[in-house]
């Protein structure tokens, strides 16, 4: 199987993906820009850190994003499943604070398949579920010329091998540009 960046990003549709690391948010924001139908962003309502739509604007159109504030982790999962299954949006992003169980992960995966929707779950390190299609770790890197450089590691892949890319975001063209491919 070919293992270039193009095969993995934009993320495979009808699948649930997980992302972790300090810049997971920008990974999710870029994923929201793909697919024409808009996105739903699900968070827990107690969280003090808020998504800034003005900061979101370079990555995707904030008018197409609907924010859902759920009261409990269970509600986040229920809302994610409902949104994935309905197919009304093309991307569902959920910020999870609790580890995803096997059953929950599998249910989300099935819901994504039923609705032909891409699911992106922002998790903390080491919290993922086995049912996910891919898991990414995104971390920023300092570069003297570029202030958007990141390191995207594919740390779980159901259908292929793992790999690391260094990428940057081109805000004008609204696309991810691979700077170089690092080792395995």
């Amino acid at each position: 199987m070919n293992n270039s960046f193009k095969d993995h990003f934009p993320l495979r549709k009808s699948r649930a993906h997980e992302v972790t690391g300090p810049t997971a948010l920008s990974f999710a924001a870029i994923a929201c820009g793909h697919g024409g139908k808009g996105a739903m962003w699900i968070v827990e309502s107690w969280q003090q850190e808020t998504l800034n739509p003005v900061g979101l604007a370079p990555f995707c159109d904030p008018a197409k994003v609907v924010l859902v504030r759920a009261d409990s982790p269970i509600d986040v999962l229920a809302a994610s499943e409902e949104a994935l299954r309905s197919g009304a949006v093309s991307t569902v992003v959920a910020e999870l604070t609790k580890p995803l169980g096997l059953t929950a992960g599998r249910r989300l995966q099935l819901a994504a398949e039923a609705g032909k929707t891409t699911g992106v779950f922002i998790i903390s390190d080491g919290m993922g579920s086995n049912a996910t299609e891919t898991r990414w770790r995104c971390s920023p890197e300092f570069d003297a010329q570029d202030s958007t450089l990141q390191r995207w590691e594919l740390i779980k892949n159901k259908s292929g091998t793992l790999k690391v890319w260094r990428v940057r975001w081109d805000a004008e063209a609204r696309r991810v540009i691979v700077v170089s491919e690092a080792g395995e």
Partner: peptide
């Protein structure tokens, strides 16, 4: 208007409250 999205918002709203589903405006 987007019928499917409105139906989704209705269904989510009946679980977590319609006020918790928000949109950003500049």
């Amino acid at each position: 208007p987007d019928d499917k999205l409105d139906d989704l918002i209705t269904r989510l709203g009946s679980r977590i409250g319609l006020d918790n589903i928000i949109r950003f405006l500049p």
